[in-house]
């Protein structure tokens, strides 16, 4: 009998709801081409190029702890030169970015240079607050720089021992984005 057939065919639809969760977290996304305009940025970004800039290799060899230094370099040295804060590594301008087709992960890791040479020509730069802590802002957004930007850093050398040296920066001039 059709006693159980009062209901007609109800099509079973398996709704495979693919929920794509795309979080637009603007705090992590930065546009390096955007000109920094806030007060913090203007404090660090210099309008004119500081004079007598030295290369990274020279500064690494010669600078002593506490020396005021002006160093020119390009942002890079590894596939991730930025830390996500106001700090990054720069390399000596004598190094050439890896050409396309070499199979390098990124042009700014300068992996085609000899590792020892690259180590000698790479230095860490950070912008700190009054307590000496690295500023939490991403350098890309804060300073308007990106990988392979050529910049001139003005700051103080910080040498922990004979091997380790970094720069606590107080100004940056962006020569080439």
């Amino acid at each position: 009998m059709f006693k159980s057939t009062r209901f007609a065919l109800s099509i079973l639809t398996v709704g495979l709801l693919v929920v794509g969760c795309t979080r637009n977290d603007s705090s992590n996304k930065t546009d390096p081409d955007k000109k920094p305009s806030n007060a913090v940025a203007s404090k660090h970004v210099l309008d004119s190029e500081p004079a007598s800039a030295k290369g990274v290799k020279e500064v690494k060899q010669q600078a002593k702890d506490g020396d005021e230094v002006v160093v020119v370099g390009r942002i890079g040295g590894s596939d991730k030169p930025f830390t996500g804060r106001a700090s990054f590594t720069i390399v000596d301008v004598s190094f050439k970015p890896c050409p396309d087709g070499e199979g390098c992960p990124t042009p700014w890791d300068f992996c085609c240079e000899a590792p020892d040479d690259l180590a000698k020509g790479t230095i860490f730069v950070k912008f700190v607050d009054s307590a000496g802590k690295t500023l939490a802002n991403d350098a890309k957004a804060l300073l308007g720089v990106k990988e392979l930007s050529t910049i001139v850093i003005r700051g103080q050398a910080k040498r922990d021992d004979d091997k380790s040296i970094s720069i606590v920066a107080n100004g940056v001039f962006i020569k080439q984005k």
């Binding site: 830390t83 590594t89 180590a119 860490f124 950070k126 690295t134």
Partner: peptide, 19 residues
């Protein structure tokens, strides 16, 4: 703390060649 703290240390101490 986050990864950036350790990353900064490794980049600051490039002589250690750590990542």
């Amino acid at each position: 703390a986050d990864l950036a703290d350790v990353d900064e240390f490794c980049k600051e101490r490039l002589d250690l060649e750590l990542q």
